[in-house]
């Protein structure tokens, strides 16, 4: 773990403006922000550790627990909402047995909502590992997660 983190840090000058790009790269590497990594980032950039945590918790992108192998993001954009996104989310929660923001115990699935993925003409939609599933219905959700989502 340390080597990857060091490699990321070495690419950035020790400046406050680098904090968010560093956090983004660390999350891309580990799928979340491990506590030790945030402490190391604080040391590296020379800012109080609470500041790193304050910034990380402000932005919706950052998470503090590992992501599941299959990461579902249900869009809660306006177009999706008027086309029934809320019920789509409920059905995904029902199928996976977890709530928004959670990861299954076996780390297979994690679920989040996203403000808008910009595929508004294909509403309601969701994304599984960056692949957009368009024009969702409750039955399509059941189909997607049938057999544990394989």
């Amino acid at each position: 773990m340390e080597q990857q983190l060091e490699a990321i840090l070495a690419d950035h000058p020790r400046k406050r403006e680098e904090l968010i790009p560093i956090l983004q790269e660390v999350q891309a590497e580990y799928s979340y922000l491990p506590t030790e990594a945030m402490l190391e980032i604080a040391r590296y950039t020379g800012m109080p550790e609470s500041r790193v945590y304050g910034v990380a918790t402000f932005y919706a992108q950052f998470r503090f627990t590992p992501m599941g192998k299959k990461h579902t993001m249900v869009c809660r954009g306006t177009a999706c909402h008027v086309n029934g996104a809320e019920r789509i989310l409920e059905e995904v929660e029902e199928q996976l047995g977890i709530k928004e923001g959670e990861t299954t115990e076996d780390l297979e699935h994690s679920l989040e909502t996203v403000a808008c993925i910009g595929a508004c003409s294909l509403a309601p939609c969701l994304m599984i590992n960056n692949k957009v599933e368009a024009k969702m219905t409750i039955n399509k959700v059941r189909e997607l997660y049938k057999n544990g989502g394989e």
Binding site: M47, S50, T57, F58
Partner: peptide, 8 residues
């Protein structure tokens, strides 16, 4: 700098 705002 012990404290900061957390979440939003």
């Amino acid at each position: 700098g012990v404290l900061d705002f957390v979440n939003r």
